[in-house]
C-alpha cells in the first residue's frame, strides 16, 4: 500500500489564496472546475465485477487518481434466534480503509442504513423458511484512499457487488432444514432485475448557487456545504450533511440537489448496470 499523502494525513488546510481562487471559479456561471469537468460529470471510473471466486458476489472499482475499492459479498445460512435484533442483523457490513483506524463506523453506517431501506424487499429474499435465514456479510476494502471523500466510490462498488450477488436456490420446504440446489446456474440474484436495486450514495457539494457532483478534495474544501445523497431506484432516500452547513443550507439549493441527483443517478445506474456486459 502506498503511504498516505502527507497533506491528507495532517489535514493541512489549503492556502487562503487557493481557496478564494477555487471559490470564485466555482461560483461563476458557468462554473469552472479545477479539472474542467461539467458540474454533473464524474471522474472516469474503471470497474469490474465477479473478481473474487469464493464470494457470492464481488466488484472492484478504481478512480483515475488511484483510489481503489474492493467489495466482497458472502452469504451464510444462520438459525433465526430471538435474542438478536431481528432482520436488521441479517446484513453485516464492515469497511476497512487502509491506513485509517477501523473503528470509524461512519462509512459503514452510511452504507448499511441505505441498504436496509424498508421497501427494497431484500430482507424477504434473505428469509429461508421459518427457522433459517441468510446472513450476508459485505466486506468493503478501500485500498488507497482516493483524493476525495470515499463515500461515492464505496457505494458504487457495493452496488456493483450486490447486483452481482447470487444465492443458491432453495429446494426444501418451508418447515424443513434448508437444502439447496447444487447447480450454480440456478442461483437466484439477491437483487433481481425487476426489483428495486441497491441504493447508492452520491456526494454533492454546493458552492454559492452552483452544485457539483463527485467533488475532489479541493472542491470539498472550498464548498459551502457537502451533502451525501442516497438514492434508491428513482427516489432520494436520504440526505445528510457531511461538512459545513454551519450557515444553513438554502432551500433552493436542497431542492436543486434532489432534482439533479435523481437525474444524475439514473445515468449512474445505467452505466453501472452495463459493467461486465461487454465481455
Amino acid at each position: 500500500m502506498a503511504p498516505l499523502q502527507t497533506s491528507q494525513q495532517t489535514g493541512t488546510p489549503l492556502s487562503p489564496a487557493e481557496l478564494s481562487y477555487l471559490h470564485t471559479s466555482l461560483t461563476l456561471t458557468p462554473p469552472i472546475r479545477p479539472d474542467s469537468r461539467t458540474p454533473t460529470q464524474f471522474r472516469p471510473l474503471i470497474a469490474e465485477s465477479d473478481i473474487l471466486p469464493s464470494t457470492n458476489g464481488s466488484a472492484r472499482m478504481i478512480w483515475g487518481d488511484g483510489g481503489e475499492c474492493v467489495v466482497g459479498v458472502k452469504a451464510e445460512v444462520e438459525k433465526n434466534s430471538a435474542s438478536s435484533g431481528g432482520p436488521r442483523d441479517w446484513v453485516e457490513i464492515s469497511v476497512e480503509v487502509s491506513g485509517q483506524r477501523d473503528d470509524d463506523a461512519f462509512l459503514g453506517m452510511t452504507v448499511a442504513e441505505s441498504l436496509l431501506v424498508p421497501e427494497s424487499g431484500v430482507l424477504e429474499r434473505l428469509a429461508l423458511g421459518e427457522r433459517f435465514h441468510w446472513k450476508v456479510f459485505v466486506d468493503i476494502l478501500l485500498l488507497t484512499p482516493p483524493l476525495s471523500h470515499p463515500a461515492t466510490l464505496l457505494t458504487l462498488t457495493t452496488y456493483l457487488a450486490l447486483r452481482n450477488t447470487f444465492l443458491p436456490k432453495l429446494v426444501s420446504e418451508v418447515a424443513e432444514d434448508p437444502v439447496f440446489d447444487d447447480d450454480w446456474d440456478n442461483a437466484l440474484p439477491l437483487y433481481p432485475v425487476d426489483r428495486i436495486a441497491p441504493p447508492i450514495t452520491l456526494l454533492v457539494v454546493s458552492v454559492g448557487e452552483n452544485i457539483f457532483f463527485d467533488p475532489t478534495r479541493e472542491e470539498l474544501a472550498a464548498g459551502d456545504v457537502v451533502l451525501a445523497v442516497s438514492i434508491c431506484g428513482k427516489k432520494v432516500v436520504g440526505v445528510r450533511t457531511l461538512e459545513g452547513g454551519g450557515g444553513g443550507v438554502g432551500r433552493a439549493v436542497v431542492k436543486r440537489v434532489i432534482k439533479e441527483s435523481c437525474e444524475v443517478a439514473e445515468e449512474v445506474f445505467g452505466s453501472l448496470n452495463s459493467v461486465g456486459e461487454g465481455d
Binding site: A47, S271, L272, S274
Partner: peptide, 10 residues
C-alpha cells in the same frame, strides 16, 4: 455524459 465506466485495461 456525466459518468464513464470502463473495463480495466492491460
Amino acid at each position: 455524459m456525466p459518468i464513464s465506466i470502463s473495463p480495466p485495461q492491460p
